[in-house]
C-alpha cells in the first residue's frame, strides 16, 4: 500500500497535485474538530470583518468566524458526498455485477428497477421529502435518499462490463474450479470494474454535493447545519456581494474549486493506475 503511494507520487504528476489539493481541503475540514467555537452559533464575532490576521477568512454578517465556519461546512459536505458515493457504489456494484453475470430473469428484474430509478425525477422527490420531514431531514437522511438515486446509470455501466466478463474463459474456468458466484463476482470480476467505480465515485460526489448546494440555496434543507450549500444560502440571503462582503462568497468558491480539481486529478491518476491493462504492464506482461 505504501509502495503504491510512493510510486504514484514519484511517477504521476497528476496524482501528486491532486493529493496536495485534496490534502489541503481535508486538513482544513479536519481542523473543525478543534474548532474553538460552535459553528452553528451566531454573533460570536464582530460581523462583516474582512480577512485579517485575527479572522483569516473574515467574518460574515451573522457574526461567525468564516474560517471555523467553513471548516465545519467542508467537513459536513465532504462527509455527505463520501457517504452518498460509498452507499451508491455498493448498490451499483452489486446490481451491475449480479445483473451482468447471472443474466436471465435476475437481469431483467434488476434492470427494470434500475430503469425506474433512472426515470423518476429526483429533485421534486427531494423537495417532497423536505416538506414531510422538515427539520428532521438531517444530512444523513438526505445522503440515504441521494444514494438511492445515485446508482442506476453506473450500475448499467458496470453491467455492460460484467456482460463481457461473463463470456471470458476464465469465468467458466472459475466455475469449474468450484468457485461460488460471490467469489467469481468479487474476486474475478470486481478488479475489472474498479476503474469505473473510481471515476464514478468522483462524479457521484460532485453530483451529490452539487445537489445539496442546490437544495440548500433554495432553502430546502436544514439551513442551520453548516454545509457548503447553507454557507451560500446565508451569503445570498444577506446579499453578500451587494453589501461588499465578497469574501463570504469568494473564499468558499475557491475552496470548492480546489476540492473538485483535486478529486478529479486523483480519480484520473488512480484510474490509470488500477486499470487492468496498465496493471498487467507493470507486472511485466
Amino acid at each position: 500500500m505504501f509502495a503504491v503511494f510512493r510510486d504514484l507520487i514519484r511517477y504521476n504528476l497528476e496524482f501528486t497535485i491532486g493529493l496536495v489539493l485534496v490534502g489541503i481541503v481535508a486538513i482544513f475540514a479536519a481542523l473543525s474538530f478543534f474548532s474553538p467555537v460552535d459553528p452553528t452559533l451566531i454573533y460570536m464575532a464582530i460581523p462583516d470583518q474582512p480577512p485579517s490576521a485575527q479572522y483569516w477568512f473574515g467574518t460574515n454578517s451573522r457574526g461567525q468566524d468564516l474560517f471555523w465556519h467553513l471548516s465545519a461546512a467542508f467537513r459536513n459536505s465532504l462527509m455527505f458526498g463520501i457517504t452518498v458515493a460509498v452507499l451508491s457504489r455498493i448498490i451499483s456494484i452489486t446490481v451491475g455485477l449480479a445483473a451482468g453475470y447471472l443474466g436471465g430473469w435476475v437481469d431483467r428484474i434488476l434492470m427494470f428497477i434500475n430503469d425506474i430509478f433512472v426515470a423518476v425525477p429526483i429533485f421534486p422527490i427531494l423537495v417532497l421529502f423536505y416538506f414531510v420531514l422538515r427539520n428532521n431531514m438531517d444530512s444523513f437522511t438526505m445522503a440515504l435518499i441521494l444514494a438511492c438515486f445515485g446508482w442506476p446509470f453506473d450500475a448499467r455501466l458496470i453491467r455492460s462490463v460484467a456482460l463481457g466478463l461473463k463470456h471470458r474463459e476464465f469465468t467458466r474456468h472459475a466455475v469449474f474450479a468450484g468457485m461460488s458466484t460471490r467469489k467469481v463476482l468479487l474476486e474475478e470480476h470486481l478488479p475489472y470494474v474498479m476503474p469505473i467505480v473510481f471515476s464514478t465515485f468522483m462524479n457521484n460526489m460532485l453530483w451529490s454535493i452539487g445537489m445539496e448546494v442546490t437544495l440548500a440555496v433554495l432553502g430546502f434543507t436544514n439551513i442551520n447545519n453548516p454545509t457548503i450549500g447553507t454557507v451560500l444560502y446565508w451569503a445570498n440571503s444577506h446579499s453578500a456581494m451587494v453589501v461588499g462582503t465578497w469574501w463570504w462568497i469568494v473564499i468558499p468558491v475557491i475552496l470548492i474549486v480546489i476540492t473538485f480539481l483535486g478529486l478529479f486529478l486523483l480519480a484520473v491518476s488512480m484510474n490509470e493506475y488500477i486499470d487492468p491493462r496498465s496493471r498487467l504492464r507493470r507486472m511485466g506482461a
Binding site: 471470458r168 474463459e169 476464465f170 474456468h173 472459475a174 469449474f176 474450479a177 468450484g178 468457485m179 467469489k183 474476486e187 474475478e188 478488479p191 475489472y192 487492468p276 496493471r279 498487467l280 506482461a285
Partner: peptide, 20 residues
Amino acid sequence: EAFNPLKKIERYLESTARQF
C-alpha cells in the same frame, strides 16, 4: 484466457482442491 491475468495461477487449483 482461461486464467484471470490479474490473479495467480494456483488460485484455480487451490479452489478446485478445496471444493472437490
